[in-house]
Design a protein around this nucleic acid. Structure first.
Lengths: 329, 329
DNA sequence: TTGTATGCGTTATCAG
DNA sequence: CTGATAACGCATACAA
């Protein structure tokens, strides 16, 4: 393997000079810079990131920590978009991403988690879908051992940022449009998880709308489960005008249930996943750009790693309707 | 950061001794081993994988290279399962995985790819869905610069293995069951890609069956695109008894088209993705365990990295039918 | 069985 | 602006 040393010899300069041009230091004359670059080219030199990391103590390695909800196996689209967005942005910024699933660290104590990430030489964490119940992971974040960005969870501090859409507003908006369009008054609202951050925000949105329009809203918790939403629909939909769900997956469960019950009620979802195109009816929903959200999280993390302090970032959302032919073309 | 040096001092032994117990060398007395482990415990020492990698020249880093087919955006399930299987197995074996998408390297020359992976200190590649057209990537593999495992592509040599199901046999089996059960004689077969390895294997299977049962099989290429399958179905399905597709996604496209055409024909798929549950009708298909396949690929790669030579590994498959209620529960 | 010493390929400090 | 040289934390050949 050709090293910086060989390049130095070839270019007739010192090792440290090569290092300087490699890292774009300003104090190198144009002439030596050229010589060095020529030598690099001729020798096909590739810098060794491992050695660089050891010496500089900057690994540039991030962990993308994903909660693969067992209830949502059909919507791999969301974690996949997170992965795509994060990886592409990381490449752009010269960072590395390793993907980690909650299941891999769930059984660990906080110390074990810290050790695990330290042994991986990880500098920063992007955590998707953290809930209040994941106490160990929260402690990990709060330990301050790593810079962190939380997607869809609160918790800003000196080295923690939070990235998410305005869930309350989005739920309010989509529900309002949906309700006015369908003229519904008695709503079945299937919420996400009890104590879940996004779930509670969305609940706020729906409550605000109910107050404003004087709607009757009957609330049940669906745990983001399609099956649960199906059951709740079968149980409660009959004497309601419409169903609003805190996720697309639950909306699909509700819609399929209605079809099986052979009654019609309009259904409203949340997330904008393409699976909605397969549900049989076109539905209103909120579109989140998960890929951009993850990209934003990576950028924010790199900001934190440069010493800036944590903050909250609100990403945009969009109101859409999804139909089959849009999804497949 | 506490280092091996601190541990050595604390335990009253030499650095090399600590290194030996860390790497489970046999020639360390039980007593010193204990002393060292105690010191490690007390100090909360975490080995620095970067330093270890630099010194040993073994990084234990693998790249999982995925082809995210634009035609198949609804089936993130397949790449996701690859990712999950690979990451979990890698963790088990103490290896790291970074995920790379074809789009990130597609524009590169072979040299650039080599440099890219070298700069990432990557020792081995797992490549999913390589086709004959990806010439640069094939050359990369053939360069022998990295140990590689190809999923769903041929190309075994000294440092390349291949992992896949028996596509010809699987297509033959599922089609046979499907045809006999439905009593079909005139089949529309929607194939995958021209020159695609798995596509051609599956084609072999269907041809063998056609010969054996004396079926009339009308073959068209669908490029694994749901939309394309939809079009082909609308164009050719009317005077056929049944439709067999080289992928579930195309099967769904065909089924939805039939529904819109308001005619019924049985449809057979391939892959066993849960999206099949949303297609409206229960279909026959081949179930591949993508997660196990990826896990097998990681294991095989670690074998290659230990100096063993490449080979072909055939993974099992299963014939199943998928219905909605199975998918959501 | 244990310890010593050298090197892995960089970065960074400091002197020139 | 350039060059020596000491870290970085660990592995390993070799000596004891």
């Amino acid at each position: 393997m050709v090293s910086i040393r060989d390049v130095a010899k070839r270019a007739g300069v010192a090792i440290s000079t090569v290092s300087k041009v490699l890292n774009h230091y300003p104090n190198v004359s144009a002439k030596t810079r050229e010589k060095v670059n020529a030598a690099i080219e001729e020798l096909g030199f590739v810098p060794n990131s491992i050695a660089s990391a050891l010496s500089s103590k900057k690994t540039g390695r991030l962990a993308l920590v994903l909660d693969m909800d067992k209830h949502a196996q059909s919507v791999d689209e969301i974690p996949m978009q997170y992965i795509i967005g994060a990886i592409n942005k990381a490449k752009e910024l010269g960072l590395d991403i390793i993907t980690v699933f909650f299941t891999m660290i769930q059984e660990m104590s906080v110390d074990e988690m810290i050790r695990y990430f330290q042994s991986q030489s990880i500098e920063g964490l992007i955590i998707c879908g953290l809930s209040k119940h994941d106490k160990a992971i929260y402690k990990l974040v709060k330990s301050g051992k790593f810079k962190s960005v939380l997607i869809d969870a609160p918790g800003v501090d000196a080295n923690t940022s939070s990235v998410h859409i305005d869930n309350a507003k989005a739920q309010y908006e989509v529900a309002k449009k949906f309700v006015l369009e369908s003229g519904s008054r008695k709503i079945l609202y299937i919420a996400g998880k009890k104590n879940g951050y996004v779930s509670e925000e969305r609940l706020k949105g729906i409550r605000q709308l109910a107050d404003e329009l004087g709607l009757t809203v009957f609330i049940r918790t669906g745990n983001f489960s399609e099956l649960e939403a199906r059951k709740l629909t079968m149980q409660y939909a009959k004497n309601k005008d419409a169903i609003i769900c805190a996720s697309d997956l639950m909306a699909i469960g509700a819609m399929k249930a209605l079809i099986d019950m052979d009654i019609y009620r309009p259904v409203c979802g949340f997330d904008g996943v393409s699976l909605m195109g397969y549900a049989g009816k076109q539905m209103h929903t909120v579109k989140q750009d998960f890929s951009s959200i993850a990209a934003g999280a990576v950028e924010e993390l790199s900001r934190l790693m440069e010493g800036e302090s944590g903050r909250e970032i609100i990403m945009p959302h969009e109101l859409i309707r999804i139909k089959y032919l849009d999804v497949i073309s």
